[in-house]
Write a protein that binds this DNA or RNA. Sequence first.
RNA 1: GCGGGGAUGGCCCAGCGGUACGGCGGCAGCCUGCUAAGCUGUUUCUCGAAUGAGAGCGAGGGUUCGAAUCCCUCUCCCCGCGCCA
Length: 443
Amino acid sequence: MIDIKYLREKPEIFYSSSKARGFDTTTLDKFFDLDREWRENLKKINDLKHRKNQITASISEAMKNGGDIQALKEEVKGLNSNIDSLEERQKIIETEREVIVRTIPNLLHDSVPVCKGDENNVVVRHWGVASVFRDDVDEYLNSTGKTGQYTLLDWKPQSHVDLMQKLDLADLERAGRSAGSRFFYLKNRLVKLELALANYAVDFLSERGFNVVEPPYMLNYRAMAGATDMDTFKDTLYKIEGEDLYLISTSEHPIAAMYMDEIFEESSLPLRIAGLSPCFRKEAGAHGKDTKGIFRVHQFTKIEQFIFCHPDHSWDFLEEILGNAEAIFQSLKIPYRVVNVCSGELGNLAAKKFDIEAWFPAQGKFREVVSASNDTDYQARSLGIRFRTKDGNRFVHTLNSTAIATTRVMVAIMENFQANDGSGIKIPEALVPYTGFDFIPGN
RNA sequence: GCGGGGAUGGCCCAGCGGUACGGCGGCAGCCUGCUAAGCUGUUUCUCGAAUGAGAGCGAGGGUUCGAAUCCCUCUCCCCGCGCCA
């Protein structure tokens, strides 16, 4: 959540940031109304309590000296009923204010492009020589500022759905029956490929100073509410019936919550953590999009980068985690572009976000495979994660980025490295030590 | 799941109906040539421009003029027992 004190101090900054995001600023008006009443109420309550404390002390005194205390007792009872009713009102105000404050998005970084839809996303750079079918050349060039390099294909690449069926790598129909749409049974060498990707990402990040963590796959409300926002709750989280537990939608959340209410020594920052977990997502509102295959699914495995750091360095670390993700895709030889995501498309937590979009030759477009965000102190404040300084405790900054979301990367590999006769899929060289094979053949 | 013991400031710990003791660490200052030691003060949150006031003893209720302390419910941790891949 945002800093209430700062909101009181500099309301205009929050109004302009909210406007750029397309966030309804009447919410901010409501906050200030409630906050004013809250402070007035607090003053009254504290004055009454002060009086009560004085009387209580004089009762104590009177009892020692054998004075009369009946009248004093009556006065305290009167004060108590006043205090009770004011505190009841105060609780209501606090709850309402809390609900509102939690919806107020993080302040945008200056470099975030302002927009409504995703049209103003800024392409920062692109990498690789893409395989582009002749009909998709315009799309590819327009998506790379006309400077993207490519190999022209005169044959239409097959979709990953067709490839998986042809090569017996997944069973989607049976998954539909036993679990529902957007689920899958992975099979054979695709399972090995997934394990290889997970292993590869874990090794890659370990070598770059990350501690590897496999987190709980469920969180209680308090941890989840601290690590996420209401949009995530509404649209993506699965709840366990009858328990205070939610299935995680990314290991970002359990890892952020891992240090809930803790205080780091400054010397222990930055703390780099690589999270490995399945991710469960409702994908509400995604009807009609990517209904086939494993591109958009309710359950997938992801290796995530997470960093707790000193506030002065978080923008450097955003470059670091984005760089790590890029290095992974370069090592896999998957062409991609980096996008600076515009204000209207940002989540509430992120002050700035870069997406990496890989080129998918069968779909003929760039699509999101990585999201790298700096949440500044927003998530840390909700979770109470601080570090010690000689001038008191300050909130850390938190950052997160995908390293590898296995399903999407497997789709990218299938689409980019399929043999032109549909006979199989080549495995990127960097993965071969992990898979133990360099090709997925047909039967 | 059953029994027993716990949860107090950054950390350790006392208090067990009269408003949170002491230590360690941190910070500021004093003091010796430096360091160590020693001495003094300070150390959480909220409101307030400020003198200041309020809150805070795992969480939530209750009894009382007054609750860290007594009562009830819950959470988590430790030690046994049970169950278990």
